[in-house]
Design a protein around this nucleic acid. Structure first.
Lengths: 217, 217
DNA sequence: AGGAATACTCTACACCGTAGAAGTGTCAAG
DNA sequence: CTTGACACTTCTACGGTGTAGAGTATTCCT
């Protein structure tokens, strides 16, 4: 009945493979990742990998889980606003740390322990903000999607300050039709993603706080 | 010097290939898409595809462009709030229409005409909301990232109402540690993504409208 | 010790993107 | 009309991929 030994051995190997897989994926990105490369890096036959993970898809799922498993969700505080910001910052810094892995969270929407902890904090915050249950659920999920989306966009390079080529492209736009875009070129050159993120978080939170049909807190 | 004829012929073929590529990708998803399948569907040699698109990567980029090229961005109105919502709805419905294609917008952050039109409206709205230029740039981009992120999350199934299996998983969570999550299970079962989206848009917009250092509108 | 389970490897197959050479048809210049 | 240039298409081939299936080695339980 006590089958610890084989499992110990097996689990160690499986974990070692997963660690190596994560490292390889984080370094090379999805296009540079293959089971054969991974097997080569671990010094093992490719089919050994598939013995532990039934398919590449399952391995990628495990990689996605592995990333989120390492995050520390800060405990809830007395301010729901701060709690929301803390959750948001946690996921954003996760995306910063592993920019090439982060998109897997969308493909395999992980519902591991860390995700449950995070969404509990979000839901709790929404209710503490005085929202009725249906609103809390919807806005909580939307908040989650927003945060993940922002983090992904950032990881994929969508929010980088514009370079000279970008500037030239914007400068070539019609001066009348694109007045605002052209006027903001200097601001876009000096864009601070941290500031943009915290400002937009503040905006969203302020919007939640002033939600029409909320109860008094 | 006048080499119009051959180009006309060529463009038609190239466009036909791109159309077929888009259809195949939209139907099968990225994992079911290959140059060889596409070539088979068009009735042409695989290398012909690569003659028109230098590589698969370039073809995918063209597919991403193709999707966004078809969207109609509504013209700016007198209400910047409505303009923001209109842009948001445009991209969200794009994701609804082509859920398996939408993630390409993150990989190849398209800056085609449609994107310029959309971001002009967003920037213009932010300035009309009274934000200073640096804030307008940051919040405009953040708004964009939020909207794309929400749409992607939805396309990937992150915002579907929970099913019985999900419910059982949530129900199995610790009753004390996950009070809010468990309390919201009924709301999550009846979740309305449209409502969640519009409510969160309202929240964000209300937050922008009440931004501290904005000028009087 | 014997048997069963587990871990691992080898071989093989179908599929992939694409480099390079070899047609093929069309057109402008001689 | 011939010739050359050129865009277009195809053929062949190479190295890479995920993984099914059979075989081997190791380990554990009785």
């Amino acid at each position: 009945m006590t089958d610890l030994r084989p499992k110990v051995r097996r689990r160690l190997d499986k974990q070692a493979i997963l660690d190596a897989a994560f490292d390889l994926f984080a370094e090379e990105g999805e296009s540079g990742f293959s089971i054969r490369k991974l097997a080569g890096a671990v010094g093992v036959d490719p089919m050994t990998v598939l013995h532990h993970f039934r398919s590449k898809d399952e391995l990628l799922r495990a990689i996605a889980d592995h990333a989120v498993r390492g995050v520390e969700i800060p405990r809830a505080t007395e301010s729901w606003q701060n709690d929301l910001k803390a959750v948001a910052n946690t996921f954003r810094s996760l995306a910063h740390r592993y920019p090439r892995v982060f998109h897997l969270h969308f493909r395999y929407h992980a519902t591991g322990p860390a995700d449950h902890v995070a969404s509990e904090i979000v839901y709790c915050a929404m209710r503490r903000a005085g929202l009725p249950d249906d609103r809390a659920a919807g806005l909580g999920l939307a908040f989650y999607a927003f945060v993940l989306g922002f983090a992904l966009a950032e990881a994929e390079g969508l929010l980088r300050p514009i370079n000279d080529a970008d500037e030239a492209e914007l400068d070539a736009l019609d001066a009348d039709a694109y007045k605002a875009t052209r006027a903001l070129i200097p601001a876009l050159k000096g864009l601070d993603p941290d500031l943009a993120f915290s400002a937009s978080m503040d905006a969203f939170i302020a919007g939640v706080a002033s939600f029409p049909d909320r109860a008094p807190s």
